[in-house]
Simulated assay, not measured.
Amino acid sequence: MSKIVDTAIAKARALPCWATVTPTIEQLGGGITNINLKVQDGERAYVVRFGEDIPEHGVMRFNELAISQAAAATGISPGVHHVEPGVLVLDFVEAPALDGPDLHDADTLIEATKLIRRTHDEVTQALRGPVLTFWVFHVLRDYAGFLRQNGSAHVAKLDALKAEASALERAVGPVSLVLGHNDLLPANILRGADQLWLIDWEYGGFNSPLFDLGGLATNCELPAEAERLMLKTYFGTDPDPGLMRSYGAMKCASLLRETMWSMVSEITSDIDFDYAAYTQDNLARYRQAHSEYHS
């Protein structure tokens, strides 16, 4: 176990929110931004998420807390148990995370899409206080600036990627704003006994619905027929050519954001994860999607 995890466990044990003197603590898998722990406190279990603000990624913990509370109030996410600077304690739900192939099942995809629609409709209404906007094209411009300023190994790629991003932004066109999750990895969707749960709101913010839909599709490598099913489920009608053009552009932007997120993380992150390999994988997937979009 790494020194970082050992330190996190010691901090978790010292939190003032436990009913028992010696709660059982173990590291949870997943997560390439934060350290996540499971705490068994008597009969109840919790997740402790450690994470400071990450300005280079637009992650601000006041924002994560506000959205976590709103999502919990709507029954979409587990409840918030305790908060202090750099620490968020949530109710633990006994629910395995989905993986990409799970979303290739039509019933599961429909259920997940309905969860996304509920998020956009209900969490948007439940929010209180200041909340960030997540506009992927601003994020991409900011990432490019950060990478230049910090001497990234990927600087030579940035001019071309920025030009492509600008063209994609024009192709997306006008948008409707909803509260988006903005990090729809299948691992952030949990299958409970009687519902799906959506977790991890650190990138949450107002955005186009198409970003979450495109992100889900790319992260799960959905085939074209599954994408159409997802869009029909979300919008209640078959997607027309205009929607498909906007959606396709946002899907490309989602992959480019994941690529440049990883480029930045190569420089900044202390988490034990192979960001360089993750960058190359996502860059290849972005280039493939971008080529198909323009074919």
Rank of each mutant, 00 (worst) to 15 (best):
P16H: 10
Q27C: 08
G248K: 02
T22S: 13
A284Y: 05
I199C: 11
D270Y: 08
G151P: 06
E26L: 13
N63L: 13
G205Y: 04
R117V: 07
L229W: 08
S176H: 05
Q195R: 15
I4Y: 11
A12K: 01
R13E: 09
G204Y: 05
V155A: 14
L37R: 02
S291H: 14
T7F: 07
V87H: 01
H57P: 03
P209G: 04
T113S: 04
C252P: 01
A187I: 04
G129M: 11
S77E: 07
K232N: 06
Y143T: 07
D183L: 09
I116N: 00
Q280F: 07
K251F: 05
N182C: 15
D238Y: 09
P78F: 02
G30H: 11
P101N: 02
D194L: 06
N282T: 03
P101A: 00
V39H: 00
V59W: 02
F206E: 12
G42W: 11
L185E: 03
V264K: 02
T24R: 14
C220R: 04
G236S: 00
L256I: 06
D102P: 07
P78I: 01
F235W: 05
F50V: 07
M263G: 01
V175S: 03
L196D: 01
Q195K: 15
T133A: 12
H290V: 03
W261F: 11
D281S: 13
Y278W: 11
A277I: 06
N207A: 02
A8I: 03
R191P: 02
A284F: 03
L147M: 08
S269R: 08
V48L: 09
D107E: 15
H57A: 13
K157C: 12
D121M: 13
E202T: 02
G215D: 04
W18H: 04
D194N: 15
D6P: 06
F50C: 08
E26I: 12
A160Y: 06
I54C: 04
G79S: 14
D281N: 11
T218M: 14
E94F: 09
A171K: 12
A167L: 14
K11Y: 05
E43H: 12
L132E: 11
G180W: 09
A126Y: 00
K251V: 01
A71N: 12
V83D: 06
S295T: 10
H81M: 13
L132Q: 15
L185M: 08
P241F: 04
A284T: 09
A126H: 00
G236E: 02
D41P: 05
L243H: 05
E221T: 06
L168T: 04
R13F: 05
M60P: 03
T233W: 01
